[in-house]
Design a protein around this nucleic acid. Sequence first.
DNA 1: ACTCGCAACTGACGCAGGTCAACGCGAGTA
DNA 2: TACTCGCGTTGACCTGCGTCAGTTGCGAGT
Lengths: 245, 245
Amino acid sequence: MSGTATLSPLNLYQLRRTCGTCSLSELCLPMGLLRSDMQRLEELITPRGPLNEGEHLFRIGDPLRVLYAVRGGFFKSYLVEPSGREQVLGFHLPGELIGLDAIWPEKHQCNAVALNTASVCELPYAQITDLSRQVPGLQHSMLRLLSKELALSHALAGDFSAEERIAGLLLSLSSRMKARGYSETQLTLSMSRRDIANYLRLATETVSRVFARFEQDGLVNVDRREVTLRDMEKLGKLGRCLSIE
Amino acid sequence: MSGTATLSPLNLYQLRRTCGTCSLSELCLPMGLLRSDMQRLEELITPRGPLNEGEHLFRIGDPLRVLYAVRGGFFKSYLVEPSGREQVLGFHLPGELIGLDAIWPEKHQCNAVALNTASVCELPYAQITDLSRQVPGLQHSMLRLLSKELALSHALAGDFSAEERIAGLLLSLSSRMKARGYSETQLTLSMSRRDIANYLRLATETVSRVFARFEQDGLVNVDRREVTLRDMEKLGKLGRCLSIE
DNA sequence: ACTCGCAACTGACGCAGGTCAACGCGAGTA
DNA sequence: TACTCGCGTTGACCTGCGTCAGTTGCGAGT
C-alpha cells in the first residue's frame, strides 16, 4: 500500500500549496510554464480539502466560478439525463482539470463527485483567463487540455466491444497512474463496477463477466477492486484504440 | 430549391470576404466581437474554395497550420482506426469551425472532407491565438466553441436506441439549419446513409429501417435525401437528449 | 435502350450484451 | 451470532441491432 501513500488523507496537508514544488505540476495546468509565470499562477490558486467520499465539487447548473485541479484522490464527473438516468463522463486523477466543459455557457454541464477522500486546487476562471492573456503558455495549456478531452471523448464514442472497452479503461488508468509515479500493473480501482459499466455504456453484469473472462485467460488478476495487469501485450491489442495518453 | 441557393457553387464568389458583412458572423468565431476587433480578425483570414465533393481540407497527422470556418457547403470529419474502420465524428455546417481537436498535439486528429461543393475561411492558428490575447472576446469564443463541442460529444456518447439517435440527428440538423435561415422542417441531407449510420454507431440497414418506421408512423417523409419533419413533438420526445443547440 | 455501378431498401438469421433473478460476501449494527 | 444492506458475481433467458444476402431504382456512360 505504500505506493498509494500520497493519495491518503493523512498526507494531503503535507503537500506544498505552490505549483513550483507540487509533484503534479508537469501534468497539470502549469505544465511547461516558466518559473516566473508559474508564480503568478500560484497566487490565484486556493487549495481546498479534504473532501469526503461522495462529496460534490459542483453540480449541473452551478455558475462557473472556478476550475478545479485534482490534487489528491479520484473524482468522477457525470450528468443526469431528463429520464433520470446517470451517465458517467469520466474519472479524474491527480493533476487533471475538472470543469472545462462549463466554459460554454458558463454553467457546469455535469456533476463532479469525490470517489474517495480527496483534495483540489481552485482556479478562479475569470482570473485564469485574464492571466492567460499575458502568459501565452497558459492560454495554450487551456486549449490543449480542452482539445485533449475532446479527442478522448471522440475515441470513446466509437462502437467497441465490451472487452475492448474494458481493456481500454484498464490501460488508460495504468498509463495515467504510471505518469504519476505509481505502478502501471497494480491498480486500485476507486470506482464501483456500476460506475465502470456506466462510463463504458455496459451493464454491470457485463463488466463482471469480462473481468472473469480476462482472469481466466490470464490477462489480469482481479480481487475486488485490486487489479493486476498480467499480459499488457494482449490487453494492448484489445484496448489500443481507446487509450489516449 | 431556392432555399439552398446560397450553398451552391455559383454564389460562393458573391459572398463578401469580410466577417463584417458575412451573414454567418453571428454564428461563427467573430460572434459577439466589437466592430473594430472584427476588422483585426478579418485581416488574418484567407478565403479558400471552391472545394469539390470528396476533397479533403486536411488529413490525420497534418500539422495544425490553420483552423477552418465553413463558409458554404457541408463537411464531415472522421477518423480512421488502426483496424482501418472509419468513424465519422461530425457534420459541419456553414459558420462552424473545424480543426479544434488538433490544438493538442498540434496535429490534426481526424480527416475533414467536403460532402458537396464547399468553401471555407482559413484562420492561421498562431495568429489567431496571438490576437486572442489582445481581444478577450475572441479568446472566450475559442474556449466556448471547444467546450461546446465537448458537451456535444458527451451527449452523443450515451447509450441511446437507434430511433433516439436518428431523431436526435434530424433535430440537430433542423435547428442548425433554422439558425442559418433555412427551413427547419425541410432538410436536404448532404451525407449518405452510410455516413449517418457511421456517425450514430449504427448499421446502414438500421438507418433505413428506422427511416421507414418513422415514415410509417407519420413522423417524417423521406424521399432519398430529402426529408420533411412532420411531427416535431414526437421527434422531440425521442431525440431530446441528443440535440444540443 | 442497354449495361454497369452504386446507394438504398428489405427479409432472414444470429449474437453480443441487456435484463431478471438468485446468491455469496464483507461491513456495519446490535 | 444473527440480521441487514449494498456490492459483486453468476446463470438463464430475451431482444435490438448487426450481418449477410438479395432486390430495387436511379444516374452515368456507351
